[in-house]
């Protein structure tokens, strides 16, 4: 194990890179380049780095030209970002995470309407505004409600995430800042702002338009790819666990998706 220094170094610098620390990256650019080349060329080195990443409860989202894009493997991880990072007010009720999840998925749906968009170059994906997300939420919050009773997968007593969403107003005219997350718009703005700060989205404002427009970055695309697979499987597990009836056109047997832990590396 003579490579310990290099392995740890690559993981450390990739952590800094994923977190958006430009100073560290620009200071060690040449070193990173060498490490990355070794990562892609040497099989033993590659394996060792992956081991290291696993040991630190991280996961590899994507091998990017500058460094590895990493994120926490699960919620209990040391590097996991928590609800508190979305603002103190949002963190107060533990169930808020469900609403944030809905909003995150709706934002992703607005950016990537079809599954092939998750692989398309981000430059081709265009922009979204907060209104697009609201439109999607409107459709899905209602879709669950008007589902055919025969397809009912849950006991009617159980409140669903969509129901929580339906009981929030779309907009709260009294608060112009998205502090409490007590309306759709506040939640959406909070999520979008958070993703701008984490470098997942870029925001633009055209002169004629009063609305903020958002564009995705490759980092966002690779992060949502892994996370959406996770959510998809999480639902599968819930179904199996709770013996819920499946959604129409859904079978447990065939699993075309790779499990979340094995993200194919490029």
């Amino acid at each position: 194990m003579e490579n310990i220094y290099e392995i740890s170094r690559l993981v450390y610098l990739s952590l800094a890179y994923s977190n958006g620390n430009k100073r560290i990256i620009s200071d060690h650019q040449t070193e990173l380049m060498e490490l990355l080349q070794r990562f892609q060329a040497e099989d033993a080195f590659h394996r060792a780095v992956m081991e290291n990443i696993r040991a630190m409860e991280l996961q590899l989202l994507e091998v990017e030209p500058l460094a590895l894009r990493l994120s926490a493997r699960n919620g209990a991880s040391f590097f996991a970002s928590t609800l508190t990072d979305y603002g103190k007010m949002l963190g107060r009720t533990p169930l808020k995470a469900g609403e944030l999840l809905c909003v995150h998925c709706a934002v992703a749906t607005a950016f990537f309407p079809t599954e092939s968009d998750l692989d398309a170059p981000v430059e081709d994906l265009g922009v979204i505004v907060s209104g697009d997300v609201i439109d999607i939420l409107r459709v899905f919050a209602k879709a669950e409600e008007t589902m055919d009773p025969a397809d009912e997968i849950l006991h009617p007593e159980v409140r669903t995430a969509a129901q929580r969403l339906r009981e929030l107003p779309e907009e709260n005219p009294d608060s112009k800042r998205a502090v409490g997350g007590n309306s759709w718009l506040e939640l959406i703005i909070r999520v979008l702002e958070h993703m701008v700060t984490t470098g997942y989205l870029l925001e633009f404002q055209e002169e004629a338009e009063e609305e903020m427009e958002y564009r995705p970055t490759p980092a966002y695309q690779s992060a949502i790819r892994t996370a959406s697979v996770y959510v998809f499987h999480a639902f599968r597990e819930l179904v199996a666990e709770k013996k819920m009836t499946l959604l129409p056109g859904d079978t447990l047997q065939e699993s075309p998706l790779s499990p979340p832990s094995e993200v194919p590396h490029v």
């Binding site: 977190n19 958006g20 926490a72 928590t82 609800l83 979305y86 892994t226 996770y230």
Partner: peptide, 9 residues
């Protein structure tokens, strides 16, 4: 989801 999706803190 948040833990896996957001960059490491």
């Amino acid at each position: 989801f948040i833990a896996m999706f957001d960059p490491p803190v």
